[in-house]
Design a protein around this nucleic acid. Structure first.
Lengths: 214, 214
DNA sequence: CCAGTACCGTACCGTACGGTACGCGGCGGC
DNA sequence: GCCGCCGCGTACCGTACGGTACGGTACTGG
């Protein structure tokens, strides 16, 4: 009677090492082959059976969701050391955010994952889009806004609504980069160009919102 | 011997009225049903046979391409009256661009078409992405840059590279709107909010690049 | 009135792909 | 040693959908 309880092994929390390997296979496939990812291809690439895939991830969407989460979990790594904030420190922090953000959205992986999520958002049950949004735009917003507010407290910045200020920052940094990459424009940014663009964006942002300490 | 030359009737130029109706059916379907557009559904909606669809548009991609072109052709309608440029006129022109652009990208149709094009760009033969890019981001750039340059000539703006200046303008106007909509965020902007956002973007742009006439 | 054309409706074909079933090998516990 | 279990490989099923074929109808030119 203790006959093997089905027990939902679907991945909801941290994936095991083997599962991570599968997810990496998905990412690799996605990056190399564009989308049109098939379960067969994943199984072959990850050297596992489709049955296992379905046991672990439920269905194709589950696999995609787990992949997006997995990728998100490795991007988040980043310290938010909040120290004393003078003008130089503020600028550094913003510059760091800008460079990191541009690095992320310019990466093949981010582009492909965003494409998947966008396509998914177009066909109902759009949790993928929400997940990407939460780990991308909203996550960076959640981390930048405290810095902006600290800057305001320190008398370095002037704005009423930190959300609005952040969105301006976001626009100045991202500009047309993301949409162009998503639509397949070549536009390869090297590290130097990213740094230059990020610096200009930060300077512009400070020109708009900065104020000399009274 | 004059046996009905096959004669490629594929739509390359302006579609006939009936063809336009078909393309409008595609747009309607796209907007209402999200993507997962099937040829069957199009034929049913447009009250035409699949055979005709294939005769006119070649294949599914051809239909999509024609749809994107068709939509683009109706958006372009807009006068670029270039008159004398004082500060107020410059501001008006930029504001007009900003409002128009936000209106477009916030529209259901634009969102859906961009989703299609982005998905398409992910799976090789990405002409759709290129077409959307050419009629969206690049088209607006081509129209704004002359205005910026006229502003510079008139001593109202200061910048070195009009492309860079335009990209800043683009970022200030669009901010996170497009990516959020593409990823399925609700975010419905009413006309008033669009106007307000556009005005702020223009003001910020002028704050960065404007200069009092010497 | 006839021939030709255009196009609608529908039935049909082929295939790709999501999802399932089954047999086999390796590895733990008794 | 033998027995579950886990997971690999593979064969298989069902279906959705892109694309084609064909019969029927309306219109046009001669």
């Amino acid at each position: 009677m203790s006959a093997t309880i089905p027990r939902d092994e679907t991945v909801h929390e941290a994936p095991s090492a083997r599962q991570q390997a599968v997810l990496d296979a998905v990412l690799g496939l996605l990056v190399e082959e564009g989308d049109q990812l098939t379960m067969d291809a994943v199984a072959r690439r990850a050297s596992c059976s489709k049955e296992t895939l379905y046991k672990w991830f439920g269905d194709r969407d589950g696999l995609l969701t787990a992949t997006v989460r997995w990728q998100a979990s490795r991007v988040h790594a980043g310290r938010d050391a909040a120290g004393a904030l003078d003008a130089a420190a503020l600028r550094d922090r913003l510059l760091d955010f800008a460079v990191t953000w541009l690095d992320v959205i310019a990466g093949r992986t981010s582009v492909v994952l965003n494409r998947i999520a966008i396509a998914h958002a177009g066909s109902r049950k759009g949790n993928l889009g929400a997940i990407v949004l939460a780990n991308g735009r909203l996550a960076i917003g959640g981390r930048v806004k405290p810095v902006l507010e600290a800057g305001r407290t320190a008398g370095l910045l002037a704005f009423e609504d930190s959300e609005t200020a952040f969105r301006t920052f976001f626009g100045l940094v991202g500009r047309d980069v993301q949409i162009r990459l998503l639509l397949g424009d070549a536009l390869d940014l090297d590290a130097a160009e990213i740094r230059r663009d990020a610096a200009r964006a930060v300077d512009q942002f400070l020109a708009l919102y900065g104020q000399a300490r009274p």
